[in-house]
Simulated assay, not measured.
Amino acid sequence: MKTPTCADFKSFYSSLSASDKAKFAECAGTTKGYISVHLVYARRMPRKDKMEQLFTACQKFGAKFDKSALIAFFYEEQHA
Rank of each mutant, 00 (worst) to 15 (best):
Phe61Cys: 02
Cys58Trp: 04
Ser19Tyr: 10
Asp49Arg: 10
Ala80Pro: 01
Val40Met: 12
Arg47Val: 15
Arg43Asn: 09
Phe74Met: 04
Ser36His: 07
Gln59Met: 13
Gln78Val: 13
Leu54Pro: 11
Ala7Val: 07
Phe65Thr: 02
Met1Ser: 03
Lys60Arg: 15
Ala57Tyr: 07
Ile35His: 06
Arg47Thr: 15
Thr31Phe: 09
Lys32Asn: 11
Thr30Lys: 08
Ala25Phe: 08
His79Val: 15
Asp20Cys: 00
Glu76Val: 14
Pro46Tyr: 03
Cys27Gly: 05
Thr56Ile: 01
Lys50Gln: 12
Pro46Asn: 13
Val40Ile: 15
Thr31Tyr: 09
Phe74Arg: 04
Gly29Thr: 09
Ala63Ile: 11
Ala63Arg: 03
Phe61Val: 06
Pro4Val: 03
Phe55Ile: 02
Thr3Ile: 02
Ala72Arg: 14
Glu76Arg: 14
Tyr75Phe: 10
Leu54Tyr: 07
Ala80Leu: 05
Tyr41Gln: 05
Ser15Tyr: 05
Phe65Met: 08
Ser17Glu: 06
Leu16Ser: 13
Gln59Trp: 00
Gln59Ser: 13
Ile35Lys: 06
Pro4Trp: 06
Lys10Phe: 13
Lys48Phe: 10
Lys67Thr: 02
Phe24Pro: 03
Gln59Ala: 13
Ala72Leu: 12
Gly29Asn: 03
Met45Tyr: 14
Arg47Ala: 15
Tyr75Trp: 08
Asp20Ser: 11
Cys58Thr: 14
